[in-house]
Design a binder for these strands. Structure first.
Lengths: 232, 232
DNA sequence: TTCATGCTTCGATGGTAGCCGAAGCATCGC
DNA sequence: GCGATGCTTCGGCTACCATCGAAGCATGAA
């Protein structure tokens, strides 16, 4: 029969859109939990679990157990390098991914990621915070500035000492599924989302299990006033 | 919406065993006819035709019509490089077919990977550099030592300041397809290969598209003197 | 302990893609 | 012109695998 390493084996692992999305999400080097990866790929945890065990068997990702979470990361730079190479080939022939994000436009606009705001509005919010120097971002790490603390207290009644948590960071960059850019996670991200809900600016969709976040008319206006970029 | 390159699209092309066999058969750089590729993959010409049109649409192979034959070759060295990377990952995790690496022994001994030396000699060269502390390797990262800089200047007339590049690293470990170990990439890897060519120690095979590198007799001797391990 | 959360396994379903037989073009040799 | 060879298209079959619901297991919290 044929000889050599079974390149089809590895390639077919990357060849599935759901798995490719997971791997892409891991390209920034951070480790993500199984559920986070499921969300990134837009699939249920069961399916993600199946995919992840395959990726692990294929040596593309490595698990790390931490409490009841299971973090996954790319095995090493060789894996990342191959993924980059594939991306290069795909980009060259103009094959950009179109349908990998959520189909639902509402889901793309605003949705819950864990407990914080994601989607177009989530990315826009972090952009605005960064641009106005309310937070400082160094690569993956985000830090709240003194100016930012004043802003939160004044406009959202969020006091910085409410945000402390033994293990969870206050600010964290979370790669947005549909936008492929970062939005704000961490206890601050969660607190802001909670505040939006309390202020009745937004509410999670009533459909059971839906991750869509619906903004009210006044909520959208207030949000735009605080974080708008002038485009809408 | 924002979207990256569709890596799943390309990977799934390689992910089918029949197509992977075809691509592997093309790894030596030679062009093969559709029927030859069908035979390599162990499928009927009809099926092969379908696969080949997909590979062509994906930009992995290019056809060349000649009489009533249709020759296919890999589009360029980038494709070959990605395939090498995939093969490296597969080999590393022990997913082998039967025997490792390319059938062609010449290809296994010395070949071009992108623009630098790969194969047995490529691996041997990096081994030698590392062993004599001319480079320092920490996992994936390779660094040229001061001693190494002197060595390059003296023996190969390569001055370190020629190697600077805005985005490409000077040294980089590249996983070798046939040997399952690293060889030297980066601007230094490219510069050394170029120097070998200029010194007429080695030359790419004249067969159009071939990735084989042929060493001259004196070239082989000089190379062994610099990087030999005493085994040959 | 009891409950909640995170993840996995099992079973069933459906869509997709590889595969080949047969037929259709194209090119070459005569 | 004719037939032979190389390759492609078409249609139908089959097998695989991604997907999800439901249930099970493990860990942490109350």
């Amino acid at each position: 029969m044929k000889s050599g390493p079974d390149i089809a084996m590895v390639a077919s692992l990357v060849g599935d859109p759901a798995r490719a999305n997971m791997l892409t999400a891991l390209m920034n080097g951070r480790a993500l939990t199984a559920s986070e990866l499921a969300q990134e790929a837009g699939i249920t945890p069961q399916t993600a679990s199946s995919h992840l065990s395959k990726l692990e068997a294929g040596g593309l990702v490595e698990p790390e157990k931490q409490g009841r979470h299971r973090y996954y990361r790319l095995t090493d730079d060789d894996v990342a390098g191959v993924l980059e190479g594939l991306a290069g080939l795909a980009a060259r022939t103009g094959h950009m991914r179109v349908r990998t994000g959520p189909k639902d436009p509402a889901l793309r606009r605003a949705r819950i990621c864990y407990d914080h705001l994601a989607g177009d509005l989530g990315v826009q919010m972090l952009d605005s915070l960064r641009e106005r120097h309310l937070v400082r971002q160094k690569k993956q790490e985000i830090e709240l500035t003194a100016e930012g603390e004043r802003f939160l207290t004044r406009h959202l009644q969020i006091s910085p000492d409410m945000l402390a948590h033994p293990r969870r960071p206050v600010c964290k960059a979370c790669l947005d599924w549909s936008e492929r850019r970062h939005h704000l996670a961490g206890t601050l991200g969660a607190a802001m989302m909670q505040r939006f809900t309390e202020l009745k600016w937004a509410a999670r969709d009533t459909t059971p299990g839906s991750r869509v976040v619906n903004f009210t008319r006044t909520g959208e206006k207030q949000f735009a006033a605080l974080f708008g970029n002038g485009k809408d």
